[in-house]
Computed example of a mutant assay.
Amino acid sequence: MFAERTGYIVWFSDAKAARGLDKYGTLHYLSRKMQYAVMYMNADVAEEAVRNLQRLPFVKKIERSYRNEIKTEYEKNTPDKTRFYSL
């Protein structure tokens, strides 16, 4: 099936050199103005890839994304009022 993926936000100082980050995972988004990149990589190789990323001279900081830990299933606790507004 599908491998477990984790996301990382990589802050960098050189946008031209940051284009080479796709060697370490899937480069999803690269912001030249704010100088960060959003990457996804397999969870089993993520620890080793982060260690290799930290050694790069243009990488300032690496943060793990908590997007997959946020609850995305919502429940509606309010009653449906559409029947009161119908003609």
Rank of each mutant, 00 (worst) to 15 (best):
A18P: 09
E48H: 10
E48G: 02
A15C: 09
T78N: 08
G25E: 01
Y85M: 07
F2R: 14
F2K: 14
K81G: 00
G7C: 03
K16D: 06
L56E: 01
F58T: 01
Y8M: 05
K60M: 07
R83Q: 09
Y74N: 08
Q35W: 01
L21C: 09
D14Q: 09
R67V: 02
S13N: 13
I62A: 02
S65V: 06
R51T: 07
N42K: 11
P57Y: 10
P79V: 02
R19K: 14
L21Y: 02
D14M: 05
R51E: 01
A46F: 04
L30H: 06
S31R: 09
V10Q: 03
Q54I: 00
L87I: 11
A46N: 06
S86C: 07
F2M: 11
K81A: 03
M1I: 03
K60Y: 11
M39Q: 05
Y8L: 13
V38N: 03
V45R: 00
E48S: 04
E75M: 10
R51D: 01
K60N: 07
M34H: 14
D44G: 00
E47M: 11
A18E: 06
S13V: 03
V59F: 01
M39L: 15
A43L: 06
M34W: 13
M1G: 15
M34G: 03
R51S: 04
K60A: 04
R67Q: 12
P57C: 06
D22H: 14
K33E: 13
M41R: 04
A37M: 05
I70E: 15
R5E: 14
I9G: 02
R32K: 14
L87W: 12
L30E: 06
V10P: 00
E75W: 07
Y85T: 07
E4F: 10
R19Y: 08
E75R: 15
L53H: 02
R67P: 02
V10F: 04
Q35G: 06
K23M: 13
W11L: 06
Y29D: 07
Q54C: 02
K71S: 12
L30P: 08
M41C: 11
N77C: 07
R67C: 05
F58E: 02
K23F: 07
K23E: 13
K61H: 12
T72S: 11
W11T: 01
K23R: 15
Y66S: 08
M34Q: 11
R83M: 06
L21V: 09
V10K: 11
A43R: 06
E48W: 08
V59P: 00
D14A: 05
K81H: 06
M34L: 14
R19W: 07
E69I: 09
Y66E: 15
N42C: 05
F84A: 08
P57G: 04
D14K: 10
Y8T: 05
V38R: 00
R5W: 09
A46D: 10
K71D: 15
F58K: 02
D22T: 09
Y29V: 03
K61I: 00
L56F: 01
D44P: 00
I62P: 00
A49M: 13
A37F: 05
L27H: 04
R5M: 15
Y36R: 10
T6W: 05
E4Y: 08
